[in-house]
Design a protein around this nucleic acid. Structure first.
Lengths: 203, 203
DNA sequence: GTCTATAGCCAGATAGAC
DNA sequence: GTCTATCTGGCTATAGAC
């Protein structure tokens, strides 16, 4: 049992706070609602986390640490470029299907507070793509994939995996399908996305 | 001079409200701040728009109507699939470089209120991709592009164009570059994105 | 139509009993 | 540590003078 899963008051509050903050965002979330979700009193939130702002920060860091290390691990693994693309797409989509509010929460709060990224970068395990960039450049020099800026390729990988979840309400409208059909599209993307990217870059 | 550009009190308020709502979101925006931005009194906001909620709706619809018809126009134009991909990528990125807060605003508020899409769908000029789907299927049957679900292709096009703006703070951190370098990457994407997609699907 | 002043409410935070 | 009751500030909205 990891630290996060222990049933201490701190962890129960954190779990409830995640639920509410991720659904509503910092400004719209209510301390009372978090207390209700946690099955405790509003005063206890302040006893354990002092203020709404500090509770929010704890939630944000916890959420970020669920996502970022995965990315780092895959990008720095000892596997080929194509393997990395396949593994990331498959792992990420599986993960987000289980935590649907998480990516939007992180993106949204980083837009609200862009300088907050600086704190995150300072931490160990913050994703680093230098190995990935090297690998891509070697493949290009070897004539195995088309010339492409590795940063653009990285942005494409992230975009194709993350946006369909963040933009779900909009995309459901455009494509004109219901929730169930959309979820099936997402399931299909576990392999579709990697195929699409690899077709785009391979010679 | 279009209706939106006339300097009536309604339009001045709407412009100021866009600025604040798009930066902060509905919940965090303050009526006082909007009044300051518009250079008028807080009471006037209520005189012209009755409530914060109604002012917000006016802003949201106005923002959505700046974006969606473009998409509709391009998708239903009398051009080939490849032309549509090129035109959309180029036009959309140019547009968003001028209105950086807009996509995130729309996505964010639709996530907060997913059933709001239903109202939007009912309007004329709501994007319709049936023509695009037909074209893609014909191209596949003709053996000119690889087999792909047209809906997945559409999602990919939208993701590659929109996400780099919404996820900018995060991506800047991952790629580890400053604002200026990132803006250059976005400029490059006006053509990069279409090339990437076309490579992915053409035989 | 435009302003000042204020009503009324709601949410974060704390005091203090247990 | 946990609760109830309450304080305090800030925000939407309106009343009412001009």
């Amino acid at each position: 049992m990891t630290v996060e899963e222990q049933s201490t008051p701190e962890n129960n509050i954190l779990k409830a706070a995640k639920e509410i903050f991720q659904k509503k965002g910092m400004a719209a979330a209510r301390m009372q609602e978090i207390a209700d979700e946690a099955g405790i009193n509003k005063a206890m939130l302040h006893y354990y986390y002092r203020s709404k702002e500090l509770l929010f920060e704890a939630v944000f860091k916890s959420a970020f640490h669920m996502l970022a290390p995965q990315l780092n691990e895959i990008m720095n693994a000892d596997t080929s470029v194509f393997e990395k693309i396949k593994n990331f797409s498959s792992n990420y989509i599986s993960f987000v299907l289980k935590h649907p509010y998480l990516p939007n929460f992180i993106i949204q709060e980083l837009n609200r507070n862009p300088e907050f990224v600086k704190n995150l970068i300072a931490e160990k395990n913050f994703p680093n793509i230098s190995k990935f960039k090297q690998q891509v450049n070697h493949k290009i020099e070897a004539g195995e994939i088309r010339p492409i800026n590795p940063e653009q390729l990285f942005i494409n990988i992230i975009s194709l995996n993350i946006f369909p979840f963040i933009g779900a309400p909009l995309l459901k409208g455009f494509v004109n399908i219901n929730d169930e059909a959309y979820k099936q599209l997402m399931e299909d993307r576990k392999t579709e996305v990697a195929d699409f990217i690899i077709n785009a870059i391979k010679i």
